[in-house]
Nucleic acid binder design. Structure first.
Lengths: 91, 91
DNA sequence: ATAACACATAGATTGCTGTCAATGAAAATT
DNA sequence: AATTTTCATTGACAGCAATCTATGTGTTAT
């Protein structure tokens, strides 16, 4: 994973709401309606955040009936963790 | 380290130039003048980026003569790495 | 003292971002 | 078929952020 991709992900995680969304999704996929209960934002704003997180590759989405389920993209998350893990002092 | 602090750091790392600055500083402290050679931005813009990185706790600075030397704040970096390392699928 | 150097600060501008209300679209329910 | 539910899209707005030029400040060299 190269620097521009990482910067894009960091920018996505640079919003408190989005960071909390990712934290919630570490426990498994969730639909928008359930996620919405955890925040004090409107549904369009949440959908906007989900879009940002999806476009940088962090999330996957799956439609089932009238629900949309979001989950972490494990591969991207793994690559990102690896990059950050490499940012050590005195390399 | 709590979520708001992490979000602040992520936002700081969400700029390609700043991410590269942090990568450069993993090899040790550097003064502004040397860092500037790696980028195609003006000196005030670089100083602005150093300020952002310092204010979120990622960098430390030290003045020696007419030079300012920047280095990673190892403790903050460590806490941040640990937080990101905890963002795993299927927790 | 004067000049040169390294960096910070101020002010302006342009573009992006988080948020909302309003609306659209597709599926399930009645 | 009509209504309800769930989510996406649109358009707007206020605030922030990246960048620049111009200038200020402290330090070293001449």
């Amino acid at each position: 994973m190269n620097a521009p991709d990482v910067a894009l992900i960091c920018r996505a995680l640079g919003d408190t709401n989005r960071l909390q969304i990712v934290e919630l999704l570490t426990h498994g996929e969730q639909c928008t309606c359930v996620l919405l209960e955890h925040f004090s934002i409107t549904q369009p704003t949440l959908t906007h955040h989900m879009r940002v997180l999806t476009e940088c590759g962090l999330l996957k989405s799956r439609k089932e009936g009238r629900n949309t389920y979001y989950s972490l993209n494990c591969e991207t998350m793994s690559d990102f963790r690896e990059f950050i893990a490499g940012l050590v002092c005195g390399k």
